[in-house]
Design a protein around this nucleic acid. Structure first.
Length: 510
RNA sequence: GGCGUUAUAGAGUAACUGGUCAACUCGUCGCUCUUUCAAGGCGAAGAUUACGGGUUCGAGUCCCGUUGACGCUACCA
């Protein structure tokens, strides 16, 4: 009964991959890797009306960025292709015919308009055993009549014929045994007339069977249709190899109610997509985690913990560690409100723990927006970044914190001038230049000793001197340890900045 | 409306098959370090475990009911 583990992530190319979809992909990947199994990427493009160009590439790029590797798919190939549903029409037709021949499905001629009208006049109308005999279908018409309509090119769909009053059981790896009575299920359309393609339900079951999928790991929104899928497996005679199901809790809006959506990102100011997305139709741009300065490891770690836990207090995990630790037993059943603040914290942690030279590499593109990075030594950039990394959550914020290492201040914070630059401060700074000028060793430790000694000797006010000093060098009163800054800047540049400050800063009367 | 899922501090989660003051992280607030801003360290506030019954010596953990939330209810996935 033990089958090789084969799982699939099966998104629709109807837009950018949603962050909730990313998590589903991640869990599939973790489970596959953990069991030495295969991760399949199947493109479910059976809704031709919602197809969005570029969406498929986006999915591939996003998964790649996050390190979620695919073993079989449109790009990767494999022995179970094609991996795009629109290229599997003939396969689906074969099984629709099988169902039709076996009397498990039937042809229906009711138009969408007729169905709408029916739903208008009959409250809670459902196309099922109780109503199907009053509709226009192959169950209520003669074979000749049906054939002639088909020959005349009349649009029609194929519906699954559900026998009422059967308890359908779904054994879910996360939720346990779920039982639904077949009476509440409707005769789902399996094959659409509109675009000559199957619906999700049929395509899904056929593909999962043919691709020998062992575990279906998907969002909770599919739980209500899982019984239908079980019935389909039975009708097709595939019950013995039916995959095991695991329905994941949904990602909810951080504040209010409902599923996390694209709009929440716009409204609350955080990305809900892994990568930036330019909508080809509307031209709208949606922000992405990558562009916002997130590290893929941080996004993966953050997402993994939304709906799963290791069973203890640990929360920092690499992808490989997650592969080892993941389990359905520790998946939560409750929808998780999207906690963006915690996401920021994860990114902060990852950034903090990154070696300075690596951080400098990620920072380079941001730096290039302001100066030419080649004008600076790689080591210089790394050290500058290392000094400020504790005070940011995103790579782009590195410029706000470390910009003064690359461009001398041209403006000075008014608030700080008001507080720290009094009449006479310029004279103090001239003396400071003298002191610094005399230093042969400009290291942080040594210059600190000397300058502090000088301040004590003259009984100057420590805060006033140091902050005025900082003002000339940084442009405002914030940043890392003062002498770490001057060590990196060097003697010449430090003194030049003090001089510039003396010439450009004038006291503001309170 | 129907069906299903679900319910532990503001948020994410712990608490093995019922047994010490319900734990951890994020966030919030305070203190500390410091020449500044962070980080770090220390600490605080915050939960009658949705509500109501029951079983039991004992229930967040078991049973019944109620309510809320979420999902599905398309020729969308």
């Amino acid at each position: 009964m033990e089958r090789p583990v084969r799982v699939r992530f099966a998104p629709s190319p109807t837009g950018p991959l949603h962050i909730g979809g990313v998590r589903t992909a991640l869990y599939n990947y973790l489970f596959a890797r953990q069991n030495g199994g295969t991760m399949i990427l199947r493109i479910e493009d059976t809704d031709s009306t919602r197809f969005v160009p570029g969406a498929e590439d986006y999915i591939n790029e996003a998964l790649q960025w996050l390190g979620i590797g695919i073993d079989e798919g449109v790009r990767e190939g494999g022995n179970y292709g094609p991996y795009k549903q629109s290229e599997r029409r003939d396969i689906y037709r074969r099984y629709v015919k099988q169902l039709l021949d076996a009397g498990r499905a039937y042809i229906a001629f009711d138009t969408p308009e007729e169905l709408d009208a029916k739903r208008q006049q009959v409250p809670n109308f459902q196309y099922d055993a109780s109503t199907r005999m009053s509709m226009r279908n192959s169950l209520t018409m003669s074979a000749e009549e049906v054939q002639s309509l088909i020959d005349a090119g009349t649009k029609h769909v194929v519906r699954f014929k559900i026998e009422p009053d059967h308890d359908v059981v779904v054994d879910d790896l996360i939720r346990g045994r779920v039982t639904i009575n077949s009476t509440v299920l409707d005769d789902k359309v399996l094959y659409k007339s509109a675009d000559d393609l199957p619906t999700y339900h049929l395509a899904n079951i056929v593909d999962d069977h043919l691709m020998e999928v062992s575990h279906v790991i998907r969002g909770e929104e599919w739980l209500p249709s899982a019984p239908l899928h079980v019935l389909l497996y039975q009708a097709l005679g595939w019950e013995d190899t039916m995959p095991q199901f695991a329905h994941l809790p949904l990602l909810l809006k951080p504040d209010g109610k409902g599923k996390l959506s694209k709009r929440d990102g716009d409204r609350l100011g955080f990305p809900v997509f892994p990568l930036e997305w330019h909508d080809p139709k509307s031209g709208d741009v949606s922000s992405g985690y990558r562009e916002a300065g997130y590290l893929p490891q941080a996004v993966v770690n953050f997402l993994a913990l939304l709906g799963w836990n290791p069973g203890d207090d640990r929360e920092m995990f690499t992808l490989d560690q997650l592969v080892k630790e993941f389990s359905f037993e520790h998946c939560s059943k409750k929808g998780a409100k999207f906690d963006y603040e915690k996401g920021k914290w994860f990114n902060h942690e990852y950034l903090m723990n990154m070696p300075d030279d690596e951080l400098a590499t990620v920072f380079r593109p941001v730096l290039a927006q302001h100066v030419n990075p080649d004008d600076f030594d790689a080591d210089y950039i790394a050290r500058a970044v290392g000094l400020v990394k504790s005070r940011m959550n995103f790579v782009r914020e590195l410029w706000d914190q470390a910009g003064f290492f690359f461009v001398a201040p041209t403006a000075y914070a008014e608030k700080d001038i008001r507080k720290r630059w009094k009449p006479g401060t310029d004279e103090l700074m001239r003396q400071l230049i003298e002191v610094l000028q005399g230093l042969d060793d400009f290291s942080s430790k040594h210059s600190e000793d000397v300058v502090l000694g000088w301040i004590k000797e003259h009984e100057y006010h420590m805060g006033n001197v140091m902050n005025a000093f900082r003002l000339t060098v940084v442009g405002e009163c914030r940043g890392p340890h003062m002498f770490d800054i001057t060590e990196l800047l060097g003697k010449q540049e430090t003194i030049a900045r003090i001089e510039r400050g003396i010439n450009n800063i004038t006291p503001i009367d309170a």
